[in-house]
Amino acid sequence: MNAIFNDLWGFISTADNWRGSNGIAARAQAHLWISFVATVIATAIAFPPALILAHLGKAPVLSVGIANIGRALPSFAVIALVLPISISLGFGLGFWPTCVALVALGIPPIFTNTYTGVANTPAALREAARGIGMTSPQVVMKVEVPHAMNVILTGFRISAVQIVATASLGALVGYQCLGSYVIEGLAQPTRARDRLLTGAVLIAAMAMIVDFLINRVEGHLTGWRSRLR
């Protein structure tokens, strides 16, 4: 136990390991950056159609299908598959292949939760909104979205945390991130145990921090619910 902790602490507390293009700082930053970009793109792709389809009450089967496919999709295969495709199309390695795979993994939870949240708006609420003269966009933005906000944010949080976790696998296709420590460490598990553990602990910490932060935002944005009761 102690030896393992010493390995970890030895690596993390050495200033040189933080500097440079392969340092902890640069890799952590790259890890966060790609996760951020992928989450934003996934949201931009998944959120608007889910909102519109759910408002119109269309395509419930599509929603269930996307949720099931999303869970069944192995992130390892997605990220591995992007590599040969990207090479054959001439995009090479690194940021974009990883990002495409992360976006694909991020879409299902956001789509499904947005759809479910909005579709489950009580009919009485919708009719009341219509009754006081709201237009369709107003019903969506002022009634359905606020009502579904906590379900929507849960989907967003699941996506973001999954993206942060899976970005580690980007190291397999040449993207320098916290996962690179794990991949380098696994290549020589006895000699590079310190790198291996550092990578794993930092990835876990980053996922938990992102989870925690979005949870706080969730609490903040849906605080009005508890004030209503």
């Binding site: 794990v182 291996l196 553990l197 990578g199 794993a200 990835i203 876990a204």
Partner: peptide, 22 residues
Amino acid sequence: GNLLYTIPSLALFVILIPYTGL
């Protein structure tokens, strides 16, 4: 349960290696 669910599986595999091996 949430904590265990949030820890990325790859990280958890690696953290366990010193204790339970490959």
